[in-house]
Design a binder for these strands. Structure first.
Lengths: 205, 205
DNA sequence: TGTACATCAGTGAACGCGCGTTCACTGATGTAC
DNA sequence: TGTACATCAGTGAACGCGCGTTCACTGATGTAC
C-alpha cells in the first residue's frame, strides 16, 4: 500500500519484513543490516533512520513476534471455547502452527539470544503471550478437585516445554535427527498422555 | 599433560576446548577461529593445521559432545539399574545435568545449526545418544500390558522433547522469562505426570 | 494560489574492524645411517 | 653417539571481504504566510 507515496512509504516495516525473511533462512546471526537494506531497495545507511542499530531491529522483530503469537494463542483459546479441554488443545496446536508459519519471528523470539527484558514493550508482549498459556492451564485445571490441582504455572510450564521441545527437535531445520512421527502427532499424543496423568482425560484409550 | 613437549603438545584438543568456552559464552555464531587460536596461545593460522575450517571445528565440538552425552546417559541408565523406572528417571536428570555442565557442547550440538549428518562420525555419535533414550523408554514400557504400550519411539520423543524444552526455556541463558520452579523440579514433576498418564506410576500423589 | 522555508527520509562515499583463509617460511622434532 | 636429512606443527604477513556505522549531502514533502 502507498508503494511510492512518501520516500519509500513505510521503510521501517519493510525492513522488519526483509529481516524476518533473512533471519528465517540464515539463522539467528546470519542476517545483516546491509542485506536487509538491499532487500528493501534502499542504501545501507537508510536503516539507521529507523533503528538505532542491528539489535534494535532484532528486538522489533521479536516484539512483533510475541504480539502476533499472543494474538494467535488468544484466538485459539477463544475459538475452542466450547470446553476448557478443547480450548487447551487448540492453544497447543496454535503454538506449533505459529512456529511453522512464522519462522522468522520464531527465531527472533527464541533463538536470537536477545533478552525478553531488553525493552519494556518486548517484555510486555512476551508476558501477554505467556499469560494466555497460564490462563488456559488454569481454567482447565479447575476441572480437577482442588487437592489434585497442579500449581497453574507448573502446569503451563510443562506444556510450554513439551511444545517448545517438539518444535525445536522435530519441526525446525536441523536436517536429520528425525522422528517417525510428525510434530503434530507428537504434540497431540504427548499432551494427551500428560493430561491423562493429571486426571483430566479418561485412562482408557 | 605434556604442556610443551612437542610444539604445543596437543593443539587440536586445546583449540576444541577454547572454542567450547567461547561458544558457551557468546552463543552459536559468537565464536571465531581467531579468538580460539588466541586463547590457545597460538597464531591465527595454526588452527588450519588441524581443522579444514571453522565448520570443521564446530562439528568436532558437537561430535565430542554427543559422545560425552551418550556416555553420561548410558552411565545414568546403568546406574539406576535397580528398576527400569529408577533408571529412566536417572536418564532424565542426566539430560539436564549435561546441559548445565557442558554448555559449550550443548550449543554446538543443538544450537549451532550444523546438521547431525554432516559427518559419519557425528551421525554415529548422535545416534548412540538417541539409542540410550529409546532403550530406556523401551525397557520401561515393557512394564505395561502389550495393548497399553506406546510406540517406543514416540515415548522416547515425548520425554526428549519435554527435557529439551525445559532446558531451552528455563535452564539456559535467556535472562528473563523465568518460571517460579527450578528446571529440575519441572522435569521431575513433568515426567512424573506423563508416566502416570501412561499408567507407569500410581495415580495417587 | 504561490513563495520561502523547515523538516527529514534516503544517499553515497568512507571509516575502521575483525574475520576466515592462504602462503611462503622456519625451526623443532623424528629418523636413517 | 653423531651427522644429514625429512617431516610437519606453528609463524607472521598479507589478502579480500563484508560488516556496522557515521557523516555531510540532497532533494522530496509538509507548512506558514
Amino acid at each position: 500500500m502507498a508503494k511510492r507515496g512518501y520516500h519509500h512509504g513505510n521503510l521501517r516495516q519493510a525492513l522488519v519484513e526483509a529481516a524476518l525473511e533473512l533471519i528465517a533462512d540464515k539463522g539467528p546471526q546470519g542476517f545483516t543490516m546491509a542485506e536487509a537494506a538491499k532487500q528493501a531497495d534502499v542504501s545501507a545507511a537508510a536503516p539507521y533512520r529507523h533503528f538505532t542499530g542491528r539489535e534494535d531491529l532484532i528486538i522489533e522483530m521479536a516484539r512483533q513476534g510475541f504480539d502476533l503469537f499472543a494474538d494467535l494463542l488468544e484466538f485459539a483459546y477463544r475459538d475452542g471455547q466450547p470446553s476448557p479441554l478443547a480450548a487447551f488443545e487448540s492453544v497447543g496446536r496454535a503454538y506449533l502452527a505459529f512456529a511453522r508459519k512464522h519462522p522468522g519471528h520464531y527465531v527472533a523470539m527464541f533463538e536470537s539470544g536477545i533478552s525478553p527484558n531488553a525493552t519494556r514493550d518486548l517484555a510486555n508482549a512476551c508476558a501477554r503471550a505467556n499469560q494466555v498459556l497460564v490462563r488456559a492451564a488454569h481454567d482447565l485445571s479447575q476441572r480437577l478437585p482442588p487437592h489434585r490441582r497442579p500449581p497453574t504455572e507448573m502446569f503451563a510450564a510443562h506444556v510450554t516445554a513439551m511444545s517448545h521441545g517438539i518444535v525445536e527437535l522435530y519441526a525446525r531445520g536441523i536436517p536429520g535427527a528425525r522422528s517417525p512421527y510428525t510434530p503434530e502427532e507428537l504434540l497431540e499424543t504427548g499432551i494427551g498422555i500428560y493430561l491423562r496423568g493429571l486426571g483430566l482425560l479418561e485412562p482408557d484409550h
